[in-house]
Design a protein around this nucleic acid. Structure first.
Lengths: 330, 330
DNA sequence: TTGTACGCGTTATCAT
DNA sequence: ATGATAACGCGTACAA
């Protein structure tokens, strides 16, 4: 790789002159400029961001720590983040934490050592205090988590979402709504459950029935199956699943048992992953605008990087009810 | 951020001693070592990968250029790449090219300037010669593309896959198989079509019928609809879609028209995205082991980075036929 | 066993 | 308008 020095000697000027040409800072004579530009072309010169970074302390790189890019809700977020980043000449380092606290920490260390300019953390389950300790004063934005005492945050109102989902089921005529929740160490799962409970108290005489699961298809499947098989459990005619993946598991279970979804059993999910349109029957869900959330989170992060501010922004999105066939009685 | 200098003065030693402790290279007295370690803790010292990189020329970062992380086949690959990378202390920079040649080029430039140690390029549509020109001697692995005169490559045998898919349809009793292909500037689409044509020639009297589309749900949908509406077109009783997304579009179209999939119309897709299990009816497809392919591509890249070799490895995976309900007559 | 000094590629400050 | 040089944080010969 050709360096600025090579360019300088080839053009017969000093490195500082070349630097001025590259950054178009300071005075450079027309003639000299041409010579330098030519030398750059011929040597296929590329300025080193590494050396630049060492001087400036900026790397134009941010970290994105998400639980699992292979989990269908996250690619949308990642895409939103990356689009906004590249628009501003930033790159994104992808980190999959698997919801593991120590993996999060490990990635944070690496990102810190690589002097990345900021981090977006999605769905962290770490203690906030621990996060802040290792982050130091690195700009960051947290997503999918309702609280944050430092750094901006972007989330959807999951209590409202859970409430809306449950309310929708009652409004469609279902009377015994159970909830299959995500793992209750996930803030989002806790919030959605809370929304569910609120709605149950408001609209029904039943008491809340919550089964904790794992946000996965298989989890939704077995959760429903076990309730179906346990005759001691109450009857139910609708389920609010904590996310779409589990809802799809529920769909499978019901199909296997010959239960007619919609008619006999109402099912609503959460997330609005693309797949929810293509299930049988199509899945009613609470759509989260993942792309836009990711984009916005990145926007906030970049503005924080550009000009640190003391004001904390908490951006709250609303999940949007998408009514489809899994909650319709024909 | 504390530097190696700060640690040195705090511990009352020279920077080189600290450096030796960090890298456990060279001799360091037990007592000194302890003092240095303590100083590091107290100062929360983190070695700068940037400075290291400038010296060593290595950044422990690779680039992953894929068309679109939000497209359901790619997250699996990305996850495989990232898992293998982090296992070796490498980070992955995520780049979405949208199949655009100039975006690929732009990302390559950035990655080059950031001195990343290597690149994995998935589904590139650039001219090979152009790629090689801008890549220079940067180690790289190309995926999902059948040829490569420099750098390793990982792909699935799409001709075989297309052949197998088509053959399966005939073996299930369908007689008029049409093909909805991906965009024919995509090498994968061309190869799959070729496999289709081979099978048609071998197993049927009909001539091949190919409709070019765009690898998207809506593309599959409209492609089928237009054929259905065009009475001049031949009749068909099965379709091999170039990927699962388009196959899902076909499913929707057939459902809309009241065509019984499986019975009246056989449908097979390609990719084996998670969603293909949950459609109605479940989608027969050619499964590509995305995770494993990504993992392997990264493995190849890292070994190339560690010890450059002249030997070019071409790793060919096979797509696996997953028989489900969309190709079954009951 | 430990310290000194140079170099990595670049920017920025100061002279010229 | 241009050139010389220190500095960024670290690794590494080489000297002590």
């Amino acid at each position: 790789m050709a360096t600025i020095k090579d360019v300088a000697s080839k053009a017969g000027v000093a490195v500082s002159t070349v630097s001025r040409v590259i950054n178009s800072s300071g005075y450079v004579g027309e003639e000299t400029k041409k010579r330098v530009l030519n030398a750059m072309k011929e040597l296929r010169f590329r300025p080193s961001h590494i050396a630049r970074g060492l001087v400036s302390g900026k790397t134009y790189t941010i970290g994105l720590i998400i639980p699992d890019i292979a989990n269908p809700f996250f690619p949308e977020i990642a895409r939103g983040v990356e689009d906004e980043a590249i628009k501003n000449n930033f790159n994104v380092i992808l980190c999959n934490s698997d919801w593991k606290i120590d993996r999060e920490k490990m990635y944070l260390s690496l990102l810190l050592e690589k002097w990345c300019d900021g981090v977006i953390i999605v769905g962290s389950r770490s203690e906030e205090i621990d996060l802040l300790r290792t982050l130091g004063d690195l700009p960051f934005v947290s997503m999918d988590r309702d609280i944050s005492s430092a750094g901006h945050s972007v989330w959807v109102d999951n209590v409202l979402g859970g409430y809306t989902a449950t309310k929708h089921l009652y409004s469609m005529g279902y009377r015994h709504v159970i909830h299959i929740s995500g793992p209750l160490n996930a803030p989002s799962a806790v919030a959605r459950r809370k929304g569910y409970e609120l709605a149950v108290k408001e609209f029904a005489l039943q008491s809340p029935v919550v089964v904790e699961s794992d946000y996965r298809k298989s989890g939704g499947f077995t959760a429903v199956m076990s309730i179906l098989d346990d005759s001691s459990k109450e009857r139910f005619d609708a389920v609010f699943a904590g996310n779409d993946l589990m809802a799809i598991g529920v769909l499978h279970a019901a199909n296997d048992r010959g239960i007619c979804i919609g008619e006999e059993l109402g099912v609503i999910g959460y997330d609005g992953i693309p797949e929810s349109e293509d299930t049988f029957p199509s899945l009613t869900t609470m759509f989260q605008p993942g792309y836009e959330m990711g984009r916005r989170a990145c926007e906030l992060l970049l503005s924080e990087i550009a000009t640190p501010s003391s004001r904390l922004i908490k951006e709250v999105f609303k999940a949007e009810l998408k009514i489809r066939k899994s909650t319709k009685r024909s």
